[in-house]
Simulated scan of single mutants.
Amino acid sequence: MTEPVITVANLSLAFGEKQVLKEIDWTVEGGKITTLIGPNGCGKSTLLKSIVGTLKPQQGIIMLQGKPTSSWAAKELAKHMAFLPQTPEMPKDITVEELVYCGRFPHQNWWRNTAGEDRRAVEAAMAATKTSHLKEQRVSSLSGGERQRVWIAMALAQEPTVLLLDEPTTYLDINHQFEIMELLRRLNEERGLTVVMVLHELNQAARYSDAIAVLSGGHMVATGSPDTVMTVELLRTVFAVDSTIERESDGSPYVKIHGLL
């Protein structure tokens, strides 16, 4: 078993009187693709934001590589973890290359010239995401799929070991969804990049994930491989749907929904 790169222990978080996460225990293995699934409002995005430090939990601990994230300096943490929210804020009139360069911020220091390192990292990130030809275009002019690849390039320019994404295929058509999922799998296989993401599409989660974690009502109710997690019983309990589980040509489970319970 691969060593956990992220460990979440006894994590709880509330917004006012609403308890969103309740005593979450979870580990994410390094070098794997792990996907969070669950009904709307169950706490998936909140959990990701807690891990990267955007939200502060009431209780519990989050560790990166065995060290509490609360003890990391912000820049050091950003060298190891990159996070893409569901709808990133886009600076006005910025070019693709300028946006990707924003990912180099954690590596820049006033006392050291990092221009050469920055250039190499930015070029490598754009090459990996096939966005080099877009570098002079305005980000606002891109299609949804192109824009998502550029945001991933910016995250890669941070040179993280862990990439966290909140619904990376939302608002994309089927072709671009497939393109983004294939890109993430390639980055995982070629770079050993640990990918943690929230997905709504159950069959994308089953096809592309090494591990799946299921949140429901603020609780972590199941973790494991797609084979062990994707069951008729779990889909009935968590999503209130009648389903059958079939098999893709690669052996991964395929969820066929027949209707609501």
Rank of each mutant, 00 (worst) to 15 (best):
V8K: 01
N10T: 08
N10H: 13
L11I: 01
F15G: 02
G16P: 12
G16H: 09
E17N: 12
K18E: 13
K18C: 08
E23A: 02
I24L: 05
T27Q: 10
G30K: 14
N40Y: 15
C42G: 09
K44E: 06
L47S: 00
I51K: 00
T54P: 04
L55N: 07
L64F: 02
Q65P: 08
Q65Y: 04
S71C: 04
E76N: 06
P85A: 02
Q86W: 04
Q86S: 00
T87R: 15
T87C: 12
E89S: 05
M90E: 08
T95N: 08
C102V: 00
P106K: 07
P106I: 07
Q108L: 00
E117T: 07
E117I: 06
R119E: 13
R119S: 10
A121M: 05
V122F: 00
E123S: 07
A128S: 06
L134T: 03
Q137S: 14
Q137I: 07
Q137A: 13
A153N: 00
Q158R: 01
E159R: 09
L164N: 01
L164D: 01
Y171S: 14
N175F: 15
N175I: 14
E182F: 05
L184G: 01
L184C: 03
N188C: 07
L193F: 06
V196Y: 11
L202S: 14
S209M: 04
A211E: 15
A213S: 12
A213Y: 12
A213D: 08
S216I: 12
G217F: 12
G217L: 08
G218A: 09
V221Q: 09
G224N: 11
D227N: 12
V229H: 14
V232E: 15
V232R: 14
V232F: 11
T237E: 15
V238C: 12
F239H: 07
A240Q: 15
S243E: 11
E246F: 15
D250M: 04
P253W: 11
K256A: 11
L260R: 15
